[in-house]
C-alpha cells in the first residue's frame, strides 16, 4: 500500500506543457513516482507525448520513446522481450496511451500483447476523446457528448454511442491484472500502479483523466469532476485479479448524473429526456456490475 509520506519527492515528470488542470498530468506524475527511475515509457501520439517531448525539452526524466499511435502494445512487447533477452531485470516497462490510442487504433496491438502475456504495464488515460488533435470523438466518448466530430445540433445529440468497456475487454483476455481508476482517487490509482509493477505479465489500468479543455469545465474542477463521475456511477473503481473482479468503491446510492453532466460544456445541450436515457443506461450497467461482480 502506498503511503503519502513514503512517496518520493522526486518528480519524474515535470515542466510539461499540458493544459492547466489536466487530469493526465496527475496520472503521469504519480505513476512515475511509484515506479521510480528504472522505468522505460512508451508514448504513442497523444496529448501525453505532445506535451512532454518537444526537442530539446524532455519532461520525463526517465527513458522514454515517442512512438506510432497504433503501436503501444507492440512497442511494449518489444521492449519487454528485448530486456528479457538481454537478461535485464527489475526494469518497469510502461505505456501511457490515450483512450483513442487504446480503444480505437491501438486495440489490436494491445490485444495481441496482452494475449501473449508479455511483461508490461499499460495505462490508458481516458479523457474521452482525441484531445491532442482537437477534441474529436473516440470509441470512449460518452453518449451525448459534443466533440468536434460529433457536434450537437438540430439533428444531432452529439456522440450517439455509449462508451466501449475496455476493462471487460481486458478481462476477456484473462489478463493477470486489470483495473479501472480515476485521477481524483490518487491513492487508489497509485496502489494499482504498485500492484501492476509487481505483476508478472501484462497489467492494464484504465484511468479516467478529466480534461478541462475538451470537456469544458474550469481547470480547478478537475479533481471534483473526477469525483463526481465516480459518485454518479458513470465510472467505477474496480480491479480484476486471480479471475475475480473487486469493486474498490461502491457509492451507497448513486448520485444523479445531471449534476455531473451539467458541470461540463460538452453536455450542456442535453435535455431532460437525454439525461434520463443516460441514467437508465448507467442503471443497467450497474445491474450487470452487481449481478456479475458483487454477488
Amino acid at each position: 500500500m502506498i503511503k503519502m509520506k513514503d512517496l518520493t519527492d522526486k518528480e519524474y515528470l515535470y515542466g510539461h506543457k499540458a493544459c492547466p488542470g489536466c487530469g493526465m498530468g496527475i496520472v503521469g506524475r504519480l505513476a512515475t513516482k511509484v515506479l521510480g527511475e528504472k522505468t522505460i515509457i512508451a508514448l504513442p501520439a497523444s496529448c501525453m507525448s505532445t506535451v512532454t517531448t518537444q526537442y530539446p525539452q524532455m519532461n520525463y526524466s526517465v527513458p522514454s520513446m515517442t512512438m506510432a499511435f497504433p503501436g503501444t502494445g507492440a512497442v511494449l512487447s518489444g521492449m519487454s522481450a528485448g530486456l528479457k533477452s538481454l537478461g535485464v531485470k527489475d526494469v518497469n516497462v510502461i505505456g501511457f496511451a490515450g483512450d483513442g490510442g487504446t480503444a480505437d487504433i491501438g486495440i489490436q496491438a494491445l490485444s495481441g500483447a496482452v494475449e501473449r502475456g508479455d511483461d508490461f504495464i499499460y495505462v490508458c488515460y481516458d479523457n474521452e476523446a482525441y484531445m491532442n488533435t482537437g477534441i474529436q470523438r473516440s470509441g470512449m466518448t460518452p453518449y451525448g457528448a459534443t466533440t468536434t466530430t460529433t457536434p450537437s445540433g438540430t439533428a444531432s445529440i452529439g456522440e450517439k454511442h455509449f462508451k466501449k468497456n475496455m476493462f471487460e475487454i481486458m478481462i476477456a483476455h484473462r489478463i493477470p491484472y486489470a483495473a479501472t481508476a480515476c485521477s481524483s482517487y490518487t491513492t487508489d490509482f497509485m496502489n494499482k500502479i504498485e500492484k501492476a509493477k509487481n505483476i508478472k505479465g501484462p497489467a492494464y489500468i484504465h484511468v479516467m483523466a478529466p480534461c478541462p479543455t475538451g470537456w469544458g469545465f474550469p481547470s480547478e474542477l478537475t479533481v471534483e469532476i473526477g469525483k463526481m463521475i465516480v459518485e454518479c456511477g458513470l465510472w467505477y473503481l474496480a480491479e480484476y485479479e486471480n479471475g475475480k473482479v473487486k469493486m474498490n468503491l461502491v457509492p451507497k446510492t448513486l448520485k444523479p448524473v445531471k449534476d455531473y453532466l451539467m458541470a461540463q460544456k460538452r453536455f450542456k445541450h442535453l435535455k431532460d429526456e437525454d439525461i434520463k436515457a443516460i441514467e437508465e443506461h448507467r442503471d443497467s450497467e450497474w445491474e450487470l456490475i452487481r449481478e456479475n461482480w458483487m454477488k
Binding site: 515535470y14 506543457k17 530539446p56 519532461n59 526524466s61
Partner: peptide
C-alpha cells in the same frame, strides 16, 4: 536520430 537527454527543461510555464 531524434533522441535527446531526458529530464531537460529549458523554459518556465
Amino acid at each position: 536520430g531524434p533522441s535527446s537527454e531526458a529530464g531537460v527543461i529549458i523554459e518556465p510555464n
